[in-house]
């Protein structure tokens, strides 16, 4: 083995082994588990019993037999897409603002963006229970406005709205950071050039800033969309009984119903969906980024 190859293995080897042992193998175990039969008291039934291999594709048949599962998947997708969209909407102006403030304020502002990570995730989500709760000032204000228009009082907490609010809140920094990293690299002269060539403020934003920031938008979207798809804590805490997402469904199979094979099946379906959307996003990205 040459020196370079040895070095390469020493550098890449440990993380590679780690990923194989703790990611690839468990994923394969999960695939195997999805074809097995649940044990009587949860877990898995023995693989070999009564003189035959105990394998069956019936969890997959079950998944497609009841539309409710497809519906939960679609709803999760919708929540993830909506969360991603709202995150872009909120993070973009913020990231742009950070690139435009004097250099010495930038680091402080970035620190403020990531500061929430310093406190526990669950505590931050629980805080929203108080903010959105029926005794909260926000709820009172919303209902006063609703009342003024002759509408029935609405509950903010334990609703899809609360779930999306919580999701956006938790994932916003993951959108701000890649956007900022991208926008910060833009050559301000390009905006001068565009203006000089006749572009008004909107055209300068759309044709130059936005177009050039697409790699950042894609990166941020991936960092928000994918985790939101699997997130169960936020819907658990802020959602109502009807606001179950994929994450909750999977968690329920393993910890509640103790139907490991079906839980595995759901996990695999989720992984496939994420891979499919990632592939789609990459195709889109490659088309627009090929030459950026």
């Amino acid at each position: 083995m040459t020196r370079e190859r040895l070095t390469r293995w020493l550098v890449a080897g440990p993380p590679f082994v780690f990923m194989v042992v703790f990611f690839v193998l468990p994923a394969l175990i999960m695939v195997a588990a999805s074809f097995r039969i649940p044990g009587e008291h949860g877990g898995l039934a023995p693989l070999h019993e009564h003189g035959a291999w105990q394998l069956t594709p019936e969890t997959y048949a079950f998944f497609f037999s009841d539309f409710i599962y497809t519906e939960i998947f679609l709803k999760s997708f919708l929540v993830a897409a909506l969360t991603t969209f709202l995150c872009i909407l909120m993070a973009y102006p913020l990231a742009l603002l950070i690139t435009r403030v004097p250099k010495r304020f930038r680091d402080v502002m970035i620190l403020l963006v990531v500061l929430p990570f310093a406190s526990n995730f669950l505590i931050r989500v629980y805080a929203w229970m108080i903010i959105l709760g029926p005794q909260g000032a926000l709820s009172a204000a919303v209902n006063r406005v609703a009342g003024a228009f002759g509408l029935e009082p609405v509950a903010l907490l334990f609703s899809p709205v609360a779930v999306v609010v919580g999701m956006v809140y938790v994932h916003l920094p993951f959108m701000v950071l890649p956007l900022y990293t991208n926008l910060e690299k833009h050559d301000p002269l390009l905006l001068d050039a565009a203006q000089d060539l006749g572009a008004n403020a909107w055209q300068r934003f759309w044709r130059v800033t936005w177009s050039l920031s697409l790699p950042g938008v894609y990166a941020g979207s991936a960092l928000v969309f994918i985790p939101v798809l699997g997130m169960f804590a936020v819907p658990d805490i802020l959602g109502g009984t009807g606001d179950i997402l994929i994450g909750n469904l999977i968690k329920e199979q393993f910890l509640g119903t103790r139907d490991w094979p079906f839980g595995s099946t759901l996990s695999i379906m989720l992984t496939l969906m994420v891979l499919a959307s990632a592939a789609l996003a990459m195709r889109l990205a490659r088309r627009s980024l090929a030459h950026a």
Binding site: D187, L189, L190, D192, A193, A194, R207, V208, S211, L212, S288, H291, A292
Partner: peptide
Amino acid sequence: FQSYALFPH
């Protein structure tokens, strides 16, 4: 412009 300022995208 001196640095051309061509749009890279």
